[in-house]
Every structure is written in C-alpha cells, then in structure tokens.
Design a protein around this nucleic acid. Sequence first.
RNA 1: GCCUCGGUAGCUCAGUGGCUAGAGCAACAGCCUUGUAAGCUGUAGGUCGCGGGUUCAACUCCCGCUCGGGGCUCCA
Length: 623
Amino acid sequence: MNSLRVLQLHSNYIEYKPIKKEIDRAEETGKEPILLEEVVVLFTAVEKDDNETVAIQAIEETQNFLEKLEVNKILLYPYAHLSNNLAKPAVALKVIKTMEKYAKERGIETYRAPFGWNKKFTISIKGHPLAEQFRLIQPTEAQKEEKVSKALEAEEKMKSSWYILQPNGNLIPVEKYDFTGQENLESLTRYEISKTRASQQTPPHIRLMKKLQLVDYEPGSDPGNLRWYPKGRLIKSLIEQFVTNAMLEYGAMEVETPVMYDFHHPSLVDYLDRFPARQYILKSEDKDLFLRFAACFGQFLMLHDTQFSYRQLPLRIYELTRYSFRREKSGEITGLRRQRAFTMPDCHALCSNLKQMKNEFNIRFKLCMTVLQGFELEKEDYELAIRFTKDFYEENRDFIVSLVNEFRKPALIEMLKEKVLYWIMKWEFNVIDNQDKASALSTDQIDVENAKRYDITYVDENGDRQHPLILHCSPSGGVERCIYALLEKAYREQQKGKAPTLPLWLSPTQVRVIPVSDKFMKDAEEITKTINKSNIRVSFDDRPQTMQRKVREAETEWVNYVLVIGQKEKDSGIISVRDRLTGKIRKMKLAELVDEILKKTKGKPFKPLPLPEKLSKQPQFRG
RNA sequence: GCCUCGGUAGCUCAGUGGCUAGAGCAACAGCCUUGUAAGCUGUAGGUCGCGGGUUCAACUCCCGCUCGGGGCUCCA
C-alpha cells in the first residue's frame, strides 16, 4: 500500500545548504545556506499513486500537531530516502507544492527546501516526547474509491430510447408494441429496461452443471473462476474447436496474445477509460499490470505494428481468449452465466470504408447465426437486440433494417442520443433463461475510435495512410455462457416433459453398452471396442449391478443411446437401442447405429471419451 | 458492491444451549446373475464453512471472515 511518508521533527533550528542538482527536473534555487529556528521540519517522500488529496490530508494532520506543540512554522523538506517506492519526480513535486500551498492557505508559516537537490543540513531536535513523529498518510476510505473507468460511469448515465424494429422496417416505441406471442422478446425488453423481473430459486443450469459432473465452483480461487471436470472440459473444448474452425473458414487469421498488460501503457490507459469493465490488477516488481478483459489490446497492439494496405482489407484476426478476465461485482457472478474468468472467441475485422464494413458486418451476422445453430440454438432460442446512435440510424436506416430482415423476427432497439463509448452500433443475440433473465451470446460492434487510439493504419490506393474501421465480434459469446444456454434449454425441455439432452456431438457419453448379466460382459466389451473405433464416445457398464439400475443411470447421465446386450442380440446380430430422443427401443444392426451417429455429428469436431471406458474405473467428480 | 437468506458425511437434507450428531443416496465388501429408470445385507465415512466471543457447557447464541443462493445494481 502506497502512502505519503512524513518524518516530522520539532527542532530548535535547522540549517541546510543546496549542494548540487541530483535530477534534471530540480528546481532553480540559490546555493546560500538557510537557517530556520523553532520550526517543525517535515521530511517528506512521495510514493507512487499519492495525489493531492493525500497532500491535503498530510497538512491537516500536521496542523493538529502544530496546535499541540504551539508552533506555527514548518519546513517542507523533500527527502526521497524515506521510501523505496517513489513517485515520479514530476508527481512528487506537484504533491509537495500542493502541501506548501495548502499549508499557507491554512495560515501556517511555511518554508520549503528545493526539490531535486543534494543538500547538506544540520539539525537540532527538541527532547520532548512529541518532537519526533513518523507518519504514513494513506487516502481515507472515501478517497480510496476504486478506479472506476469513465466508461463505467458513462454507461450508468447513458439515456436511451427503446423501440421494436420489425423486419418490414417499422420502428415502434416499446410502450406501444404488442408482444403477444413473443414472450422472449418481451422478457428481453423488460430485462434491458430493468423493470421488475420474476425470479426466485437457484438457476437450473447450476444444479445441472454439478449433477452432470461438468463444472463447479472452485472455493480456493476468486469467485467466478471455475473448475472443469473431464466431461465439462470435453464439451468446452469441442465448442472451442468448433468456433475456431468456423472463424478460420470465414477467413480469420488465428493469433495468440498475452493475458496481461501494462496499466500505464499510453494506448491502454486511454482505452481502459473507454471500456466498461473492472479489471484484475497485478503487481510485479515495479509494474502495475491488468488482466485482459478481451483480446482487443493484444490484437490492436499487434496490428499497430503490422504492415498492410487496402489490398488486404477486410483483414480478419481472431483469438480464442482463455481467459478473458473481468472483475465483476460479486453479486453479479452466477454459475455459467457470468464469471470473472471466461473463455471468449474474439474476432476483429478491419475495413476500409462504410461500404466494405457493411458487407463484412452482414457476413458476420450470418456467420454468428450459423455458429449458434451448430450448438442447436435456433432462432426461436434467442432474440436480437441492436443498439446505435441516432445519427447512425438516420444515415444507415436501410442497413439496420436489412439485418432485422435477415433475422426474420422483430428486434429490440436501443437508440442513443450520442456516442457514449467507442462504438456507433452493435448488436447481440440474447438468450432468455428459466428465470426470465437475458444474457448476450454472439455480438458484433462498429468501432470508430480505436484505430486512431492505437494508431492502426493501412495504405490506401494513393499511398496515403488511413485509419480503418474496426469491427469487434464474438461469434458465439462466452463459451461458458453457451453451455449455460444449452443447459437452460435442456431444463426447459424437461419441464415440458421431454428428456433433457445435449447436442449429440457435445454429449460426453454418446453410447452406453450394458450387458444383461455378467455372462455377456465380454460381448459388451467387444461391441464397445467396435463402436469406439468409429470415433464415437462409448462406455460400458461393467459394475456388479442390475441391468435396470444401469439403464436408469445411463438415463440420468443423459446418454444418447443405450445398448443392452444379451442372448438375443448375440444370436441375432440385431441390437436393441434405447434412443433418448424418443424413449423407445429400436432394433437395428450395429453398423446402422454407427452410421446414424456419424451422420448426425458430421462436420463437428470430435474428441474421445474423456474418462475410462469401463464404468467401474470412472471416478465421480462430486455431483 | 449493497440488502437478504444459507453452508451439518462425497451428494440431498433432518436435528438439539447438555450425554455417543442422524437419514436416504453414493463409496467400499459380500450376496444376487438379472431383458430396458433404483435387488439385498453389511462396513466405513463428521474440525457441524473458518476465526473469535458469551457460557459451567456452543453445531446451536453474538461478532468478524469466507463461499454460495435470491433481490438491487450492472452486463463487453
């Protein structure tokens, strides 16, 4: 903890004489010796992060002492040796001058020794108990308020108007819109405008994430930092691969950038102020670092040093951030919905002009829908919200309507009087959960500031340097949040009486083989091995339990296909398959089942079963 | 972050200012050898979230901390 350090000495006299300048910024002064009598000398060292508030506080505390000592004369004596964590000279001088000025205002006879000089001094200190004091002055609680970025404050003040934009282009104020049949859009609207919200118990996905042994809280970390069990890691990893593949196919170049950055880097200081997030701060020797909350910094700093021309535009650059860190307020963190450390695909596209940008924006809009569809999140599962400045809307109305048209459902519109942050337009796909809460998944925004801020330039047709427009997109939104959406959706299905399930390609166990009795253990194992060869996640239940029990457990684990192997199957070569989707038993050949699964998971990434094939060998991760 | 509720066995949850803190499930051992959602018996398992206080005595009452739920707020 930094503080202003003051060694306060009640002296009979002090005599000092400047010898020579120690630093470039030293003040100009004469070299004649100065003698002061009956004075309180304040040897002062200014540390990093000290400010004028602390200076004032120091003088106030000193004045209290002066009254006790019945003295009204001080000498401010810059004395760097009290600290090994000094502020920069410019800052220190400012703080000391503030002390001087404030002390004079308070009617104290104030002298000050010059800053930045090597001085010699002789001092005689009084013998009473209060003569020697050492104080650390730290900002009081009220002054110590967290550094809140201007962006956060701006968001808090942001006033907007709300509408519903229909695919045909009609823009209807929210209060006049008839939401009949569009409950999710209504929920989103209510949620965004922050009226009341009906909600009560633990979110269903939190119970499910534990019960299915996917992921859990880690009490040994900070809130919102999760631990992933093998099955959860599998799902997360497959989603990561899927999204990354989609981005590569779209033409993005995958890069990797650091997770932490220098708090005092010139471009970053400025950007931090324009981004509404609280950071994790790290101290490392003499540096203050913050953990990234998106891939923006890394990619922008990289692009600043990259040489490219209009010929390479649109330029697409992508990173899967594992992790992005946002120090959310503790009350906002919930399960897979919102964390402090989360995984987010982040893709930027640099465009030369508005026309190119609109075209690119459209491509990405469709791409995002395709990505969500990959997780079996269809259009009825999410709602579109678009936000823009009034100016942008008036000049680009057709463009905005074309997006809603593409979406084929009405969208919630937030219209801002003026640009508050760095973007002039953005949209998100929002899912509504079982508690009627909305959360954004995919998003894309038009950034008109950061190319300048980071001095990212391309060379145009005429050989001139230009700042590109930057699009920021997370094609899926946070990966954790995608899983949240899937679990909340599965729960909703369950409430409707259907068997809850995950998309087949994401299901940790796709097939479970169960022998009717021990006699068929070998056969079950063989079938398991056969299926396994086709890149299908299959396990077999070799535990000494009844068959009924094993079937039940396979069901509670959301296994998609359950095979029971006994004499009949052995004789006929026809297997009986319990299909989770229908709950019915289907008779088919093994090869047919394998084909069906491969067909349904075609084009999706695959990873093998993340646990031992034999159930008796599988540990249980809580749940 | 604020308000509020909670943390008891691996999980879900009973319980009491006092004697040895319970159940179901899971785990483990054994029996059973089974035809599509829970077979039977037994064994083991506890710093009652952590720290402090009040008391002859605290899992129980009080305070602080921590983790979680809900609400507010916020959400890239």
